[in-house]
Simulated scan of single mutants.
Amino acid sequence: MKTIIITGAGSGLGKELALLFSQQRYHVLLTGRSIDKLLTVKREIEDTGGMADFVQLDVQKESDIVKKIEEINKTHTIVGVVNNAGVGHFGPFVHITEKEIIEMLHTNVLGTILMTKTVLPLLEKQGEGLLMNIISTAGLRGKVNEAVYAASKFAVRGFTESLQKEYANSSIKIKAVYMGGMDTPFWEGSSHVADSSRFRSPKEVAEIIMEQIEHDSIIIESKKS
């Protein structure tokens, strides 16, 4: 069975994409930092007849990524990766702390690059595969109180568009997903969004992504339909 890796799979969009990929008969490898959350998603997938495993993984650490992907590759055929893990800190730019800046750049940018750098050679060896980067509409346009977050997403956009050109003549499909805010716990403790219930649910966003998966660029605005 073909294995697809999903980062940040313990909740939100990562979880919903994991459920949908499992329904398409992929073996889903869930990665994230919370074992409890990953175990819950694994059980949910198995309860619906799918197959899943999980690995606790820090996308900011190349040594951790390389070691664990090498272990996985010994027993599974990795055919794709969904780079979904991300963090956001919002507010006036001058109030964003150095710690918050580093966390956003290391998780959103470095994490995506390092995961891709580790998995792409495996896809090249097979001659086909899927790379999907979950970016954000903050990677399409600047937004008030999102300066560093948008900077991180613009970086991932540039990285993804460059790889799309680099692999244009290959059977490795590289997808850029730009979605607006979703109704998730992502906004808890933040005054940046007053009412996230007006946003689309992660399930709805995941379904739209799968419906449009043949497109190289998928744009999903936050407002409910």
Rank of each mutant, 00 (worst) to 15 (best):
N73W: 00
N84F: 12
I78T: 02
I69K: 08
T77K: 15
E62H: 12
S63V: 11
I65W: 03
S63N: 15
K67R: 13
V87L: 12
A85T: 03
K74L: 11
V59L: 09
D64H: 07
F54I: 07
G88W: 01
I72N: 07
H76K: 15
S63P: 03
D58F: 09
V79M: 02
I69A: 10
K67H: 04
N83A: 01
E62P: 03
I78E: 01
T75V: 00
T77Y: 02
V59T: 15
K74G: 00
E70W: 00
A85F: 03
Q60E: 15
I78Q: 02
L57N: 05
T77A: 12
Q60H: 08
D58R: 07
I69Q: 06
E70K: 06
I72T: 14
K68E: 08
G86K: 14
N73I: 00
K61I: 13
E71W: 01
F54T: 03
V59N: 10
L57D: 06
V79P: 00
H76N: 12
E71P: 00
E62W: 11
V55L: 06
N73P: 02
Q60F: 08
Q60P: 02
I69Y: 05
E70Q: 08
I69L: 09
K61V: 13
H76E: 07
D58W: 09
T77E: 13
I72Q: 12
N84T: 07
N84K: 11
V82R: 11
E70H: 03
V81N: 08
K74D: 02
G80L: 10
K67T: 07
L57P: 11
I72E: 12
V81M: 04
L57I: 08
Q56M: 05
I72W: 03
N83T: 00
S63E: 15
V79F: 01
G86Q: 10
I78M: 03
D64P: 02
I65Q: 07
D64Y: 03
I72L: 15
A85I: 05
H76V: 00
N73E: 10
E62L: 13
E70D: 12
L57C: 06
V87F: 09
K61N: 15
E70R: 05
E71R: 09
I65A: 05
I69R: 09
D58M: 04
N73V: 00
Q60C: 13
G80Q: 11
K68N: 15
T77C: 10
K67S: 11
T77R: 14
V87W: 12
V59H: 09
G86C: 08
T77N: 14
F54Y: 15
A85Y: 03
V66P: 05
E70Y: 00
T75M: 00
V66D: 10
T75K: 05
N84R: 12
V87Y: 11
K61A: 11
I65E: 04
